[in-house]
Simulated assay, not measured.
Amino acid sequence: MPERPQALFAMTARNVPHIFPPEVLVRLREHVEIDPTLVAQDFTDPRIRETLARTEVLITGWGCPRLDAAALDAAPELRAVLHAAGSVKGFTTPEVWQRGIAVSSAAAANALPVAEYTLAMILLAGKDVFALRDRLRGRRAFPYGDILPGIGNYGRRVGIVGASRIGRRLIELLRPHDLKVSLADPYVDEAEAARLGVPLLELEELLRTSDIVTVHAPQTPETRHLLGARELALMPDGSVLINTARGALLDHDALIAELRAGRLSAILDVTDPEPLPAGSPLFDLPNVFLTPHLAGSQGNEVARLGQTVADEAERLARGGGLAYAVDHTVLERAA
């Protein structure tokens, strides 16, 4: 049996037992030699540097220190980084790619709970659940048996902004439902949209023709305030905006103005800034449903990220290619 490569955890230490519970850790250790009690949170720590010098595989996650030239110089044997989370933008540097180090990400696994959250919110928003819940709570009475006009998910128009991993997974999850789904993404052409099974629209047309708009674009300098006052004004009266991507994609001042006017509703899992200041009107506006950045992997879902890394470690140990290798040439426009 070939010798297992030396590996090292590099992430926030308290997250390790959640991402790698016992059964997942056992699987990981079948393919790499790793000490779960040794976790790099600072690559200059003398105890870490001793192991780093012979590390071939880094198992990274939220809180991983930056892999700059100094850190990489201290890890001359490093050949792969397996990231047990989504984006690698926060800790990778050009030196990683220049040195030919393979990088894998569990972004695809992390996309699933975000898509599930979004699906749930679309269906609840289509029923106007949040407003009607408040109406029932306030009046302690409701016109049971009456047909409520204007609600329902039969033929509801859903616009997806961004064919990211999450956007694409959401398209899959929406297929069994009687919804009219469309997509806006400048990097997708008509042929690819056809393969995804959705019509491709310009952003302005999508905003004008959607009852529910859900944002899944990456955060880049070009997408900051992607939806500002002009774009929000295009959305029909009574429509709903969902954001599970990054808060900076929305101009919050413009959004708050629309919300105060009562023209739109919003479901926000991310904000700008994050967390919001205590005095933000988003906490109290009745047409806002606010959640604390929990759409992504949480609780028992983070073990799926660890399982993805264990699978990648097996492929690496067998000399195969990584299933979720990161392409650094498109990293800047990836979510």
Results as ranks from 00 to 15, higher is better:
Glu30Cys: 07
Arg137Lys: 13
Lys89Tyr: 10
Thr92Met: 14
His18Tyr: 10
Leu331Arg: 05
Gly155Cys: 06
Leu227Cys: 01
Asp253Trp: 06
Glu23Met: 11
Phe289Ser: 01
Thr60Met: 10
Val215Pro: 00
Thr244Tyr: 07
Glu301Arg: 15
Val161Asp: 00
Ala111Trp: 07
Leu322Ile: 07
Val26Arg: 12
Ile267Ala: 03
Arg140Pro: 00
Ser105Ala: 11
Ser280Gly: 07
Leu227Thr: 02
Glu77Arg: 15
Leu234Gln: 05
Phe91Ile: 07
Ile122Trp: 12
Ala40Ile: 15
Gln41Ser: 02
Asp146Asn: 04
Arg230Asn: 00
Leu179Gln: 05
Leu78Met: 03
Ala194Glu: 12
Leu249Trp: 01
Pro143Met: 05
Thr93His: 11
Gly138Tyr: 03
Phe289Glu: 01
Gly320Arg: 11
Arg156Trp: 11
Leu72Cys: 09
Ala131Phe: 11
Gly100Ala: 13
Asp211Trp: 09
Glu190Met: 10
His216Phe: 14
Ser280Met: 05
Arg14Ser: 14
Ala266Gln: 01
Gly61Thr: 04
Pro277Leu: 13
Arg315Cys: 03
Leu112Met: 10
Arg195Lys: 12
Arg230Lys: 00
Asp128Cys: 12
Ala217Arg: 01
Val26Trp: 02
Asp128Arg: 15
Asp251Leu: 12
Pro94Asp: 08
Met235Gly: 02
Leu294Ala: 14
Ala85Asn: 09
Ala191Lys: 04
Pro22Tyr: 09
Ala131Arg: 12
Gly126Phe: 09
Ile160Asn: 00
Val181Cys: 08
Ala295Ser: 15
Arg318Cys: 04
Ala71Cys: 15
Val240Tyr: 01
Leu170Trp: 06
Arg66Val: 06
Asn15Ile: 09
Leu132Arg: 13
Ala7Asp: 08
Leu285His: 05
Glu202Leu: 14
Asn287Pro: 01
Asp185Ala: 10
Ile166Pro: 00
Thr55Phe: 05
Glu50His: 04
Arg49Trp: 12
Ile147Pro: 00
Trp97Thr: 13
Tyr324Leu: 10
Gly90Met: 08
Met235Val: 02
Asp134Leu: 12
Glu30Thr: 05
His18Pro: 00
Ala84Gln: 09
Asp42Cys: 14
Ile101Gly: 05
Pro292Met: 08
Ala295Cys: 15
Ala84Ser: 14
Asn243Ile: 07
Leu58Arg: 00
Leu264Tyr: 00
Ala233Tyr: 08
Thr291Asn: 06
Pro281Leu: 14
Asp146Gly: 02
Arg27Ala: 04
Thr92Gln: 07
Thr93Phe: 06
Val188Gln: 04
Arg175Glu: 11
Ala217Asn: 03
Arg137Glu: 11
Arg54Pro: 02
Gly100Ile: 13
Gly86Arg: 01
Arg137Trp: 11
Pro2Gly: 10
Val270Arg: 01
His83Lys: 12
Ala266Glu: 02
Gly162Cys: 11
Leu136Ala: 13
Ala74His: 09
Ile101Arg: 01
Cys64Gly: 08
Val270His: 00
Pro286Phe: 09
Phe130Asp: 03
Leu200Gln: 07
Ala85Pro: 04
Val103Lys: 01
